[in-house]
Amino acid sequence: MEYTLKVKLIHEEATLPFRANEGDAGMDLFSIEELTIRAGESALVRTGIQLELPKGTEAQVRPRSGLALKHAVTVLNSPGTIDEGYRGEVKIILINHGKEDFRVLKQMRIAQMVIAPVAQVNLIQTEDLTISERDQGGFGSSGS
């Protein structure tokens, strides 16, 4: 299924999100500012973009594997959700799990964004749930 995502650049140094390779699920998001995230701390990083998501979708903000592997920097609330109706600036919460301070540079790829459909469900309060094979087993119940 193909959707149209509208992106508004609201800062002179903003970069349009893009896929590094054809067929990639995620589009890279870029920083418009320079800042240092101290070891063990988090920061809100501006992207300088606003979105108009297609009806019935969300944007999931996910970590970049290279930042996670090389610097132990990741998206704190991963995946972060941008709701269909949100029109404010996209900002990314990064956390530095590393032992050294991490420097975010302008135009650095800081996260990736995946557009995903959202199921709209009707909630029904009930006293009875269907028994499943798994039932209440969780937290390691399926093995190591």
Results as ranks from 00 to 15, higher is better:
2 E>D: 08
3 Y>C: 05
9 L>E: 02
11 H>A: 00
12 E>L: 10
13 E>N: 14
13 E>Y: 06
19 R>Q: 14
19 R>F: 07
19 R>N: 14
20 A>S: 15
20 A>G: 15
21 N>D: 08
22 E>N: 11
23 G>N: 03
24 D>Y: 04
29 L>W: 09
31 S>W: 12
31 S>V: 09
32 I>M: 00
32 I>V: 04
32 I>T: 12
34 E>D: 13
37 I>F: 00
38 R>Y: 02
40 G>V: 10
41 E>H: 10
43 A>Q: 08
44 L>P: 00
49 I>W: 09
49 I>M: 06
50 Q>S: 10
51 L>Y: 06
51 L>K: 02
53 L>S: 01
54 P>Y: 06
54 P>M: 07
55 K>S: 01
55 K>N: 01
57 T>A: 04
57 T>R: 05
58 E>R: 15
60 Q>L: 07
65 S>W: 09
67 L>W: 13
70 K>T: 10
72 A>H: 11
73 V>F: 00
73 V>E: 01
74 T>G: 04
76 L>M: 10
77 N>F: 04
78 S>E: 04
79 P>E: 10
80 G>H: 06
81 T>S: 02
83 D>F: 02
83 D>T: 13
86 Y>H: 08
87 R>K: 13
88 G>K: 03
89 E>F: 02
91 K>N: 02
91 K>P: 05
91 K>Y: 04
91 K>I: 06
92 I>E: 12
94 L>W: 12
96 N>V: 06
97 H>T: 02
97 H>L: 14
102 F>G: 08
102 F>M: 11
102 F>T: 11
103 R>N: 05
105 L>M: 13
106 K>H: 08
107 Q>V: 14
111 A>V: 11
113 M>Y: 14
114 V>D: 06
114 V>A: 08
116 A>P: 09
117 P>S: 03
119 A>Q: 15
120 Q>A: 03
120 Q>C: 00
121 V>R: 10
122 N>T: 12
122 N>A: 03
127 E>Y: 02
130 T>A: 03
130 T>C: 01
131 I>C: 02
132 S>Q: 07
133 E>Q: 08
133 E>C: 07
134 R>H: 11
137 G>W: 14
139 F>T: 03
140 G>P: 03
141 S>E: 03
143 G>F: 02
143 G>Q: 08
